[in-house]
Structure formats: C-alpha cells, structure tokens
C-alpha cells in the first residue's frame, strides 16, 4: 500500500456547498507497484483465457447469425445466434474491464458548480453595460423588433395548428343517420324484420355510411314481443322487439360489442361498462365508468318489412367532450 495518499479514505458528510474557491491541489505520490494499479483478478491468466473463450463465442455467434440469415432459418435461429454473439462480446468485455484492468480505486476531485460572487457580478455587469450601449440607446428598435416577433408568433400558429384539420363544427354532433335511413349490415345487406331471432344482435349502419366509425349502431332483439318501450317518449322507437343503440361507448368510445342475452345487458370490453337494455331500460349504465346511457336510434318497419330509422340520434354519440355542454 502506498504510504503516499493523504486521503483519509472515509466518507465525510462535511463540506456541503463549499464555495467555489479551489484549494491548491495536493499532489499524491504513488508507484506503479501500488495495489491500485494491479489487476483485480487473482489469476489473470485464467481470466484472460476465459475472456478469449467468450470472444470466440462472439465470433461463432455472429458467424452463426450470418449462416442463419443466408440459409433463411427461422426467427429463433436468427435471434439466438445474434444473442450468442452479443453475449460473447459483452461478457468478455465486462470481464476484461472488471478483472484485467487496474483495480483502483481512483478518484478525481469535485468542485462546486457555483460561481463565486465575484464571477457572477463581473459577468452580469458585462451583460448589462454592453446591453445599455447596444440596446438602451436604441430602445425603440427593440420595441419594433418585439412587435414583429410577437406578430410572427401569432401568425405562425395558423399554418402550424389551424391547417392541421377542420374546425370540429358539427363533426361531433352528427352521424350519417337521417330520417328514413335503412339499417344495413357490415356486409351491406339491408336488415329485414325477419333477420334476427329473439336474443339476436347485429351491428348496423345507415346505407350511405357502411362501416362508419361514428354511425355504428348495435341492433338488438331482446326476448320481448311487440313494441319495446325503453323510456317515456320512446313508445314507438322499438318496433317488433327491435332496439337500436349507438355502439360507441359513452365512456371512451370503444365499440360496445358484447350482448349478454340472458341479462339483456350490453358490455364494453375495453373498460367493462355495462348497459341495461330492454323494457324500461334505455341502455342505462349500471356498472363501470360509463357516465351516460347509449343514445337510442328510433326505428320503424317500412311497408316492405325493412328496418329503418325514424330519425337521427337526438344527442351526440360517443364520449363526452369539453365543448359538449348540456344537451
């Protein structure tokens, strides 16, 4: 052990926030025979052989990767050979650094990053005195410059933001459903009164927007006959046991895709909101985070037996949005 260090070798909690004054460096003498300069391994030759084996493994791994690529072997071969190559190099290099290099410890001194008060003052004075000369006397130029910058900032917002898309306008309020729309299946087939058995369910769209993300509507035929009245004022909305609700969840907009026939419940698989449907139950949320019922689409059966919409949805479908207000 060198007798030369004057470090006490112990942690010292003292010396917090020392001022920026650097003490003159204390020189430390050490010979290259000091233990700090020796390798950490007790048996360097053995470690060296081990590292060589690892590097050879790396070579084999990468060569194997080349072979696997050339022969178009499976993903597993490609990945495993690549991994073997990386592991060989990695383990070898880490071991090299850990065992075959001077074990240390070494240190460097640490100084606070705070400037001295003097440094700070001189710098700030430079800034302000030059600033006065450069700007103070021509302050009106600076003002014009700021006005120009401000205006640029404002007009730059237009192409940056406003060009991105349309104003929301009626986008959030209207779907493609309108008075008399036919109910059409995802395959484009018009839904007839005989199409669904009791307990059946089908996703439907208006005929001009098949597959429409916002128009998607779930058509259910609960085990009821005659008109299904879900709420007062909706006496004519559910003819022949057919009910139609927006399929866009009022919570976060997922498709409310699951219908539990035995319980007359609609379930959203994303966050498990459950809506009760059936007589007296207008898709009322009874479980989970959904805050509002699914809007109901009023239906009628036309003279040829096709299901059609009496009218559009009477409220925005889907999740709430900040500008929606009380509708």
């Amino acid at each position: 052990m060198p007798d030369s260090t004057d470090h006490d070798g112990h942690a010292e909690p003292s010396g917090h926030g020392a001022a920026g004054a650097h003490e003159p460096p204390k020189m430390v003498e050490a010979s290259l025979d000091s233990p700090q300069f020796q390798v950490a391994a007790a048996n360097p030759e053995r470690v060296e052989r081990g590292i060589a084996v690892m590097f050879v493994l790396g070579v084999v791994g990468f060569a194997g990767f080349g072979a696997a690529f050339w022969q178009n072997w499976s993903n597993v071969w490609l990945g495993v050979t690549l991994a073997v190559g990386f592991f060989g190099l990695g383990i070898g290099m880490v071991a090299w650094g850990k065992y075959l290099m001077p074990r240390g410890p070494f240190s460097e001194s640490r100084h606070t990053n705070e400037p001295t008060d003097e440094e700070r003052e001189v710098f700030l004075q430079d800034l302000s005195s030059r600033g006065k000369i450069a700007l103070g006397r021509r302050s009106y130029l600076l003002k014009i410059l700021s006005v120009a910058g401000g205006i640029f900032g404002i007009v730059a917002i237009f192409p940056l933001l406003r060009s991105l898309g349309p104003l929301p306008g009626s986008l959030f309020y209207n779907t493609s459903w309108k008075k008399g729309s036919y109910l059409v299946s995802p395959e484009g087939r018009y839904v007839h009164i005989d199409d669904l058995d009791k307990g059946g369910v089908l996703t439907v769209f208006p005929e001009n927007d098949v597959g429409g993300p916002l128009s998607q509507t779930i058509l259910i035929r609960p085990e009821t006959s005659g008109y299904v009245v879900t709420a007062p004022g909706r006496e004519t909305w559910g003819p022949e046991g057919y009910l139609a609700f927006s399929k866009v969840c009022t919570h976060a907009g997922c498709p409310v895709a699951l219908y539990q026939k035995a319980l007359d419940e609609l379930l959203c698989p994303c966050h498990q909101s459950i809506f009760e449907v059936g007589p007296g139950r207008p898709a009322t949320p009874v479980f989970g985070p959904a805050p509002r019922p699914l809007p109901q689409l009023p239906l009628y059966v036309d003279s040829k037996g096709y299901l059609r919409a009496q009218n559009r949805y009477d409220e925005p479908v889907g999740p709430g949005f900040w500008e929606r207000g009380n509708l």
Binding site: M1, T5, G9, P25, V28, S31, L32, Q36, F106
Partner: peptide, 19 residues
C-alpha cells in the same frame, strides 16, 4: 477484498521503479 485509498488521478505523481 482489501480496500485501498483512492488515488487521485488529477493530482498524481508516479514515482519509483515502475516509472
């Protein structure tokens, strides 16, 4: 492992045979 005091790399003088 025996522990040694750290050698300050920025203020080090190498002395002796090794140097």
């Amino acid at each position: 492992l025996p522990s040694f005091p750290p050698l300050p790399l920025d203020n080090l003088i190498i002395v002796g045979d090794g140097a």
